[in-house]
Design a protein around this nucleic acid. Structure first.
Lengths: 354, 354
DNA sequence: TTGAAAGCGCTAACAA
DNA sequence: TTGTTAGCGCTTTCAA
């Protein structure tokens, strides 16, 4: 077994309490005792066991993170942001994925709760009606949603006490589509991930509708596709094959989808942007390395992670002060809306005036 | 405070030992007692506290993961593979990043050790002389290296007891360069990340040398660049500007670098592949979506993670049986060399025969 | 099949 | 400034 605080105390000829004190508030131990203890620690290669500490202290300085997948760069960047901030604040990170499966969401959170994480950062399929979030609330564990964007509070209704960190998906999508409209596009088709796998996708579709209506254009219903692949949806293929029917621009609910769409268009013999423009959403870094550069809405993913973690830790530590009920302490709710940008790129250009 | 096993026992009218037994080996409790206990658990919303369990059991069913960064898709995919496998085997994952800083490597591992993870998966800058690995060995914590590739055992020398999971970097690079040579290239320049930030980069350079020599061509010294950016290195710019000096192909030590290089070449007015071919290493998925498709060596990153986790868990559980010294139990060492592929892509074509 | 009790490593209240 | 002690939640002998 590894050396415990007890062995250190024995070797140094002091009580375990003194060792503990040195570890926690070094000021409260005399210089020479401290010296002795440090030597013993060194000699034994002692390293405090956080399990003991957590058990006693009732908190773990660990946060749980639950994201759908790491295959999408966006979530990897967000996790990166979380980790960097956590390290700075001296927190550790337990991490899980869900593959967009609500069942896995719950299982993941259950496990994190058994580990007694102090809080959770998560991105769920749909923040509206979500058993996992209810569970977290029942357990009074503070949590912060990333990418999921809570609804604007309605005056008169009881305000939501949850916390989210995201861009304004609807406004951002509206900006993107407006960008296309300004370039001269009239027939713009939205391609989206499954609405039921992502509440953001729906918000982005609303943004599309806003922009189209604002410009007096006819919106089209969105085409939902599985996991970034344009299935051999024959209606889609037909639409694309027929120049009269074909949209002059595609607005995609995420960059991976946009890039896949571009590849498929190429396979169909269509050139981007000469024959059709493509705009994405996310602003993943590789998009800027392509030729043409992928026009997109840029979300500050790493910053989303950073803000989420700091907000969560603030709630946790407020809770410690408030007497353990960290969730109540964070009550009031908060919608952190981070600024988005529109990256103009060669993939979106003015349509041929032929 | 959350309900503990004690409250469950009280409510069910049994001892805590019985509750514990039900939780661990349900067979050893009578049906009706089990029934009562289950009801109590339900009613109280009891969830076992892993801190208590870990403290007592001396193991945590948690592994630590340390990677340089998540900005590189390769590591994100690897982490994904680790997480999926961990979940399947009922392990949790604590995760950290080092930004390629050896100091952060050690700090990260120290923290993980304090959390009493059962094992560690890590990618270090240089597996050769590495204080972090020595620490892990001293602490007898089993660990598995990913991407770092251990040297082939030399007959007669004491074999290394460490474990690595990677492709054969040298052979893979050799295959890539051979691919370029077969296309007709003679003047091939390697662009690499800093050798001191990545032992893989050096192996890949050796592979480049192998291929060049095998073909009787003059190898060039590699150009090392910072973090995927072709700094305004004037000698590089000059080399590129002068058609006589300019290589006909670039072999890059990773895909991000290759994509950045392509962008920079474009800025210089050079076309890929007409004026110059580019080949990467990693085979990140987005490379296949670009036009031209990025020619690259494909590493099975998610599988690297999967194999690493399973190997680690096997070592851990062998150790439990062997009496706690999991590291000794894993002794013998192992170099898992996973197969790589060469993805031909439009970015690498035959040079102009002008 | 069940219970009593010890103890994993640590912190903190209380005494000295 | 330091020591004594109780106990955080759990598992696991040992007895019954």
């Amino acid at each position: 077994m590894r050396p415990s605080i007890k062995q250190v105390a024995n070797l140094a000829g002091v009580s375990i309490a003194t060792v503990s004190r040195l570890l926690n508030k070094p000021g409260s131990v005399s210089a020479e005792t401290a010296e002795k203890i440090h030597r013993s620690i060194e000699q034994l290669g002692f390293r405090p066991n956080f399990n003991g500490r957590n058990l006693r202290a009732g908190n773990s300085r660990t946060v749980g993170v639950v994201v759908p997948t790491l295959s999408n760069t966006v979530f990897a960047q967000c996790l990166q942001g979380i980790e960097l901030a956590a390290r700075e604040l001296d927190y550790s990170v337990m991490f899980t994925t869900t593959e967009y499966l609500p069942h896995d969401e719950s299982a993941a959170v259950e496990l994190l709760l058994s580990h007694r994480v102090d809080g959770v950062i998560l991105t769920v399929a749909d923040a509206g009606a979500n058993a996992t979030l209810d569970l977290l609330e029942r357990e009074k564990i503070p949590f912060v949603l990333t990418y999921n964007q809570l609804a604007q509070p309605v005056p008169g209704e009881t305000p939501c006490t949850r916390v989210s960190v995201s861009v304004d998906n609807r406004a951002a999508a509206c900006d993107a589509v407006t960008h296309l409209i300004r370039l001269g596009h009239r027939r713009i088709q939205m391609l989206s991930g499954r609405f039921n796998a992502s509440d953001r996708a729906i918000q982005r579709y609303y943004g599309y509708l806003d922009a189209m209506r604002m410009a007096g254009l006819d919106p089209l219903s969105a085409i939902e596709v599985e996991r970034h692949t344009l299935t051999a949806a024959t209606d889609y293929q037909q639409m694309m094959a027929d120049p009269a029917q074909r949209p002059t621009a595609l607005f995609c609910s995420n960059d991976l989808l946009a890039m896949s769409a571009m590849r498929d268009l190429r396979a169909l013999g269509l050139r981007v942007p000469q024959d059709i423009s493509v705009m994405g959403f996310d602003g993943i870094p590789v998009g800027a390395l392509m030729e043409p550069v992928l026009a997109s809405v840029v979300q500050p993913s790493e910053q989303i992670g950073d803000v989420a973690l700091r907000t969560l830790v603030a709630a946790i530590e407020r809770g410690v002060i408030a007497g353990g009920d960290a969730h109540a302490a964070s009550a009031g709710g908060m919608r952190h809306v981070l600024p988005h940008g529109v990256r103009a790129g060669g993939s979106a250009a003015s349509p041929d005036q032929s």
